[in-house]
Design a protein around this nucleic acid. Sequence first.
DNA 1: CGATTTTGACCCGCGC
DNA 2: GCGCGGGTCAAAATCG
Length: 181
Amino acid sequence: MENHVTQFLGSSMTPFPFNLSPNMENSHVMNIFSNNNVPNGVVLGSNQDIRFRIAQVKEVSQKNKFIQIDQNVVKKSGKKTGEMKNREPRFAFHTRSQVEVLDDGYRWRKYGQKVVKNTKFPRSYYRCTYGECNVKKQVQRLSEDEGIVVTTYEGLHTHSAQKPSDNFEQILNQMETYLLN
DNA sequence: CGATTTTGACCCGCGC
DNA sequence: GCGCGGGTCAAAATCG
């Protein structure tokens, strides 16, 4: 896939969305996402080129392990080994983009593509190619608005990005600014 | 020639 | 039990 470079919130030209790097940064993310004051699907920022939105992962039913992403209720799939008790954090970004695969600094291998009901664009499944890192993401273009691409990340990277980007912290700061009004 | 994509098969949970 | 929908596997094809 080609590189996609776009503008983010008035900053200079940067790859989008950003690195989802582990450790401190991800715990930072989790703090934000576990904040009860954050409404589901809150719009965190926009400019004329990009609109992005955090779809907060929300536990709906503990025993059924439902999680809610944006408007959609998704069932968390069990894994083979049965030790799939730990629910991976999931979060989604809506971006307005011509290109579906956005450069977030990690290398991904595509492992599936599915046509989902009531959508005219297929959903693509990717897995992080780094060693034991088990992070997945899926990418889907909205049929209601072809200009919007939804990228859903699942899991935390056990390593740092091969192609480092300092956008992540900037965006986190902007998130906090919005959350605190 | 190794890495990645493609694509149909397979799997699994759920509702009927 | 069966079929559907969503997710994953894996072999072949393609890429770099």
